[in-house]
Amino acid sequence: MDQIPIFTLGEVLLVSIQVDLEDQLAMRLQEDLSERIVATGARAVIIDISALDIVDSFIGRMLSTIASISRVLDAETVVVGMRPAVAITLVELGLSLKGVRTALTVEHGLRMLNGTPSLALGGPREAGYGDGDGYGDADSTGDSPAPDAGSRAALPRPVSD
């Protein structure tokens, strides 16, 4: 496997990392995602790391970098599915994943994105979007319960071969 698949879900790009991540593969994902955001006009990226049994400083840096790049390209990034042991280890390692929004599951991630006022998924792309300030404080207010039923069933799953 030399590439991580990226699924398009309306205006959301979904990446599910299912392999033990080599550094080169992580770098490639960064580039592939940036290109796909521009090519598809995606407004958001969800990265599912539930299959990762560790996140070390290199992978942590990759996640932060992807979040920064997509923000510059006018898309939000949410990292979902972190295992509890990984979270504990990350904090002890000293990584805080600054600038990276997180959610427990893909569904929570979609809900969080739908609850972001400047990011009306499905609506027209606003010309003035891009304040950058709302970043990271989406969780300070109660997330409005999202219209979730539709997206839930439509989630593609990576084909294992």
Binding site: E92, L93, L95
Partner: peptide, 12 residues
């Protein structure tokens, strides 16, 4: 990296 390689590893 993020400058946590050695010091972070020691804490773990």
């Amino acid at each position: 990296g993020m400058g946590l390689g050695l010091s972070g590893a020691r804490r773990l």
